[in-house]
Design a protein around this nucleic acid. Structure first.
Length: 327
DNA sequence: TACACGTGGTT
DNA sequence: TAACCAAGTGT
């Protein structure tokens, strides 16, 4: 049985007329109920949009909001960030996760200053040359910061397309060329409409057509959904769990938390063997991060391996003074 | 292609 | 509560 939507059976000459109903229903829903987010406001800047897109990679909106606000106040332009040591970007990344994104954001800001007159590039191909920018982010920045017609495909859009027109519970584990073609076919021709469509489908996937418990009763296109029409079949595959406890990733995160809180460089032995319990620390938060690291009970060899990894990645730096964030 | 890469809320 | 999951990228 094939639940492929009849809406997609039209020839490949732009969005078929039948898509107008989907477009108007989803964009009307978006205009009525979109979340109010600072990187969507009328006074947004390309830099603000750029920072938001990087922070939002694999990271929920609610966690990004306070960090984004702090970053944009602290570094309102690429030049402001590029003028700082990379370690400051990592420090103010806080606990957003994947801190190498902060490093790449700093490197991208430097590239904007050195190669692009201090501005965020506006076209997809140039954006793609920046560190930390892949196909999704390049398309998203070109569309949401500059109004370009780009095929934006993130995990939300993939899931909405898989259900709405593909009749499946979830998209394939990895993005396929067929999915990109389908997304391109669904994209409205007009620039402004395409931007609105990209944002609206993403929002629908984020707040209604969610991965685990979709709120179909709130869906503006429930009547058109191929997955619902098919009786909401189960996923084709079982997602692979993300191991965490005992991994190098966990140890790296705990080490970096200590470095973020530390004002100065630390001796490596402090990370591996723990505080030698001298005087009571004046900085309570530093003790907490060190405590967390030591409670992991990670083997010294693993701590050393994790630290070596952080140094190799440029997230930490070793000088004669010890270990710290990169200067 | 598959895996490494953080973190914390939700189910 | 252990697992799942989130506006991905780089190797």
């Amino acid at each position: 049985m094939n639940f492929q939507s009849p809406l997609l059976s039209a020839p490949e000459s732009g969005p078929p007329r039948g898509h107008d109903a989907l477009h108007s229903a989803i964009t009307a829903w978006f205009e009525a109920s979109a979340r109010v987010l600072p990187w969507r406001s009328a006074d947004r800047t390309p830099w603000g949009v750029y920072v938001s897109e990087v922070m939002l990679q694999q990271t929920p909106v609610v966690r990004v909001l306070p960090v984004w606000t702090d970053w944009l106040a602290r570094w309102p332009t690429p030049a402001h960030l590029a003028a700082e040591p990379a370690g400051e970007a990592v420090r103010h990344w806080g606990r957003l996760g994947y801190p190498r994104r902060a490093l790449r954001l700093h490197a991208a800001a430097t590239a904007m200053v050195d190669l692009h007159e201090g501005a965020v590039p506006s076209d997809y191909d140039t954006l793609l040359t920046l560190p930390g920018v892949g196909g999704y982010t390049a398309a998203a920045v070109a569309a949401f910061a500059f109004g370009a017609r780009e095929t934006v495909v993130d995990t939300n859009i993939r899931r909405v397309h898989a259900r709405l027109v593909g009749g499946k519970a979830l998209p394939a584990p990895a993005l396929t060329a067929a999915e990109m073609r389908r997304a391109a076919l669904l994209l409205p021709e007009e620039d402004a409409l395409s931007v609105q469509w990209n944002a609206a489908v993403m929002e629908l996937g984020a707040v209604v057509c969610t991965a685990r418990s979709p709120r179909c009763e709130a869906c503006p296109v429930l009547e058109s959904c191929a997955w619902v029409a098919a009786g909401r079949p189960e996923p084709d595959y079982v997602p692979r769990g993300q191991a965490w406890a005992g991994t190098d990733r966990q140890v790296r995160g705990a080490i970096l938390a200590v470095l973020r809180e530390a004002e100065d460089y630390l001796v490596p032995e402090l990370l591996v063997s723990g505080p030698v319990d001298l005087s009571p620390p004046s900085d309570n938060s530093r003790l907490t991060a060190l405590d967390t690291l030591h409670r992991l009970r990670a083997p010294a060899q693993q701590v050393e391996r994790a630290l070596a990894g952080l140094l190799a990645d440029g997230l930490a730096q070793e000088t004669t003074g010890g270990i710290g964030l990169p200067r």
